[in-house]
């Protein structure tokens, strides 16, 4: 009932930003651009302008940082519950940086090399350069002691020390992140809860299902390990679904629970790739649909976040495609934005 009060400002800002998403005409120009420089030139007077005022090698990293900052900025206008959720969600790329640091430490790589791939996330919540310079994972955990990452890393430390692989640390921080995300989502009520489940919940379900199948197909983990390394209480993909996935249920059948149709003829690896794209495209479709109605709920920010992420993803795909001289037709299947993959 109080939605219009809480969301008056944020929905206006979200709608303004929604109109700033790249138009079809702009996408046509981008697809037709011959070089990376041309592409950067086209985007220079868009909201992505700042991300392209650097060397082309940094375009992708800057785009992701743009997403994180955009989302964080929007959270200023939210009230406590949704704000906590969105701020936590906005930190999802921080996990990528943390994994880079963990791999650098585990494989004893030079910090300088890692700095080249770290995402320049704003506002900076962690001092990445300092983290790269610590002597060991234990020292890293000590540096992170006041952050939400310390506990999951400590949990997995012994296993990491035994096996020497950062995989366990990465699984642990992923799980920690998503469990907290689900907790924050479950604290919402009413319209906020419904929209969070519809958009963010679908994404969490998708991740959970992808994990379960990837662990089975690529890592060949045992069913017990798969259950331990996934979420037990997402939205529709619960522990029973994970168990089924872990014990051989075909992917297309479990995907149906998310309302996704996959061909039963695909082999599992191909089906996994298909699930990832189809799943996110479905979320993008729902996000677009959200803008047809009133936006006095957290779905406004979430919908914009997913649309922006899809656009950022597609721009990165395009940039990488240009780098490897791929034609728009070849890139088509890798785009998330519906109009783009159909058109290309």
């Amino acid at each position: 009932m109080l939605g219009p009060v809480f969301y008056a400002s944020v929905q206006a800002r979200v709608r303004a930003r929604y109109s700033d998403l790249l138009s079809e005409k702009r996408w046509r120009e981008l697809l037709a651009a011959e070089t990376l420089e041309d592409l950067g030139q086209i985007l220079r007077d868009t909201p992505y302008g700042q991300a392209f005022r650097v060397a082309p090698v940094e375009f992708e990293r800057n785009l992701i940082a743009h997403w994180a900052l955009e989302l964080y900025t929007l959270t200023h206008s939210l009230h406590s519950g949704p704000r906590d959720l969105m701020r936590w969600y906005a930190r999802k790329f921080e996990l990528d940086n943390l994994k880079t640091v963990l791999r650098t430490l585990s494989y004893r790589q030079l910090p300088g090399r890692a700095e080249e791939v770290l995402l320049p996330l704003e506002p900076p919540t962690l001092a990445w350069s300092r983290l790269l310079e610590v002597a060991s994972v234990q020292a890293l955990i000590a540096e992170l002691r006041d952050t939400p990452y310390a506990a999951p890393l400590t949990d997995a430390l012994e296993r990491y020390l035994q096996e020497g692989s950062p995989f366990y640390l990465e699984v642990s921080i992923d799980l920690g992140y998503f469990q907290h995300l689900v907790r924050l989502m479950n604290r919402l009520d009413g319209q906020d809860r419904r929209w969070a489940e519809r958009l963010l919940g679908s994404w969490i379900d998708l991740q959970n299902l992808l994990w379960a199948y990837r662990y089975r197909v690529y890592a060949r983990l045992s069913p017990e390990e798969i259950v331990n390394y996934t979420l037990h209480h997402a939205v529709r993909i619960d522990v029973d679904a994970v168990r089924r996935a872990a014990t051989g249920s075909p992917l297309w059948r479990e995907a149906e629970r998310l309302g996704l149709e996959l061909s039963s003829q695909l082999d599992e690896r191909k089906a996994l790739e298909e699930l990832e794209m189809t799943g996110f495209r479905e979320i993008v479709r729902r996000a677009h649909a959200a803008f047809d109605g009133l936006l006095f709920h957290v779905g406004s920010v979430l919908a914009y976040a997913f649309l922006l992420e899809a656009e950022v993803h597609d721009l990165i795909t395009l940039i990488e495609g240009k780098r490897h001289d791929m034609t728009a037709e070849k890139l088509g299947p890798y785009f998330l934005g519906e109009d783009r993959y159909v058109r290309a």
Partner: peptide
């Protein structure tokens, strides 16, 4: 073991 994992491991040992 991490306290949060006690219930989880019980769910995992379903076979």
């Amino acid at each position: 073991m991490p306290s949060g994992n006690v219930a989880r491991v019980a769910e995992a040992l379903f076979q």
